[in-house]
């Protein structure tokens, strides 16, 4: 094979130039997390899939990838849920409505919705993993008749750190959503379950033949969730996982997000679990 045969014939692009976009709303979710509503110039549609990410930048500080938290069904604006953990996110936490941020994207391989349609959708989200999963949840809720049951398992370190509490309350109320939540450490006020997220899985009411599952959370969570899902008999083919890695370019050039032969920014961040098995460093 000649090397250049597999190369796309697209015109070369200015890959690294951000689109300056306006922050419309800033909402504190917890002490660490903030939800930003962002609008592209002219209210242009971002055109993303649940699970995809954008590169967000503040000049003089830097750029980093963040998952999109809103569903593509809600057009005109998009939302980013961001935890304060570093330089850039510190700066983002200072943003006010009307401020500008640079946006590139959407990038990456999101959730293949065609494969989810008509199925029961099981979502397992740990901590900040709920941010991208919320995109899928709201998609399912907005196109409710295209999907089967919606089952959500959400684990958080503590009840103070629960994200999207308004929406959680709504999901709990919604008879059409099977919502489960647990916290590692509950405060005295917490009346719900206490325990790690895997403790939710044995009690789930699953129709194994028609369930697809999407998992997103901190790196340590994946192995244990997989074990729990396997013990329930869920086939590997039904499992999708969203991974986090360091990324600089978002477009398969900078090399940081490479896991074995795969670039997370191109093949992921959402992977079909059978494809992950060949990536020894993935989990």
């Amino acid at each position: 094979m000649k090397l250049n045969e597999s190369v796309s014939t697209q015109e070369p692009q200015d890959l690294y130039l951000p689109v300056m976009s306006e922050v419309l709303e800033v909402k504190r979710l917890t002490e660490l997390e903030t939800l930003y509503t962002v609008q592209l110039p002219g209210g242009r549609d971002l055109g993303h899939q649940p699970g995809q990410f954008v590169e967000v930048s503040v000049f003089g500080v830097g750029e980093a990838p963040f998952s999109i938290s809103s569903s593509p069904t809600r057009q005109g604006v998009f939302e980013l849920g961001i935890r304060r953990v570093g330089l850039l996110t510190e700066k983002l936490a200072e943003l006010k409505p009307g401020d500008k941020v640079g946006i590139r994207g959407p990038f990456g391989h999101g959730i293949d919705l065609e494969k989810f349609k008509g199925k029961d959708v099981l979502i397992i989200a740990g901590g900040i993993g709920l941010v991208p999963m919320r995109s899928l949840i709201n998609y399912v809720l907005d196109r409710r008749d295209e999907f089967g049951r919606l089952i959500i398992c959400y684990g958080s370190r503590s009840d103070q750190e629960l994200l999207f509490t308004d929406e959680i309350a709504a999901w709990q109320e919604d008879p059409d959503v099977d919502f489960h939540v647990t916290v590692d450490r509950g405060s005295p006020q917490w009346e719900g379950k206490v325990g790690v997220i895997t403790t939710l899985i044995p009690g789930l009411d699953l129709d194994l033949d028609r369930t697809v599952c999407c998992v997103c959370g901190p790196p340590v969570m994946y192995r244990f969730v997989l074990l729990a899902l396997k013990s329930r008999g869920l086939p590997d083919e039904a499992i999708y996982m969203s991974l986090e890695r360091r990324m600089k370019c978002g477009v398969g050039k900078c090399g940081h997000c490479q896991i074995n032969h795969s670039y997370v920014c191109q093949d992921g961040p959402v992977y079909h679990y059978p494809d992950l098995k060949s990536l020894e460093e993935a989990l």
């Binding site: 250049n4 796309s8 070369p12 050039k253």
Partner: peptide, 19 residues
């Protein structure tokens, strides 16, 4: 350079390098 050409042309072709 053939290999780099491949990298910067596949997927999202990069203007900086290709120019």
């Amino acid at each position: 350079i053939d290999r780099l050409d491949y990298n910067f042309s596949q997927g999202h072709p990069e203007k900086n390098y290709l120019t």
